[in-house]
């Protein structure tokens, strides 16, 4: 998917393919299979979370009450919007709207970075409130420490995925700015879009698991 050397323009069509539309179809299918494995990856985490929550419902509620809903909701809105801009970039690229596509890609990267920045602020606040499991952990309830174990592991893994996504979209911008034809035809654009949306989808579930259980009474 990358250009082999900086001097020669990148080609979208690669061995062993002879037909670009088949290659695109294959790249999209490959990405869907990868997303399938990602679903099971996070699905395993969700299952583990659900089991532990069913064993310690009150502890999880107390833990969730400490999670910062404002940061979480801002991040959800940022991600939903980034998924929109990414989708628009994917739709604009093959329609030869290079400037539009590049603009939407840049917006996606900006929103992704904003998400990471907000997440960083939230992490910082969590640490100052001693919400990292271990000695001196803030909450006494049985299971609250476990809730935050899942909080850190799940959001951490999601953040890794976000970072990879930001890098992948940035690459589209860098190559696409120099070679508009590549942006128009490369299977990488649609595949990256799918990946970005999946990372968004994962967050939507995480949001419900982390921020909502402790609301209300």
């Amino acid at each position: 998917m990358t250009a082999s050397t900086a001097s020669s323009p990148p080609v979208a069509l690669h061995e062993p393919w002879e037909d670009l539309s088949r290659q695109r179809q294959a790249a999209t299918m490959g990405m869907w299979i990868f997303l399938l494995s990602e679903m099971l990856l996070f699905g395993g985490l969700f299952a583990a979370y659900t089991v532990c929550r069913s064993l310690n419902p009150m502890g999880f509620r107390a833990g969730s009450h400490e999670a910062d809903l404002v940061y979480g909701t801002i991040n959800t809105v940022l991600l939903i919007t980034s998924s929109l801009t990414m989708t628009l970039a994917v739709r604009a690229a093959p329609a030869r709207l290079h400037k539009v596509a590049l603009g939407f890609l840049a917006a996606t990267v900006a929103l992704g970075l904003a998400f990471l920045a907000v997440k960083g602020m939230e992490y910082h606040e969590d640490l100052t409130k001693s919400l990292f499991p271990g000695p001196g952990f803030k909450l006494p309830q049985q299971g609250a420490e476990q809730f935050f174990s899942f909080y850190w592991v799940m959001t951490g893994l999601h953040m890794l995925h976000m970072t990879a996504g930001v890098i992948a979209v940035s690459r589209l911008i860098v190559v696409g700015r120099r070679y508009p034809e590549w942006l128009e035809t490369s299977p990488a654009v649609e595949a990256t879009g799918l990946y970005w949306s999946l990372v968004d989808v994962i967050w939507m579930i995480l949001y419900v698991l982390i921020y909502l259980p402790g609301r209300g009474g």
Partner: peptide, 16 residues
């Protein structure tokens, strides 16, 4: 979540 409390995970997950 605020109205019903977070006790019923099915509603939140359903909307998600």
């Amino acid at each position: 979540a605020y109205l019903l409390g977070g006790d019923n995970p099915l509603i939140g997950v359903g909307i998600a």
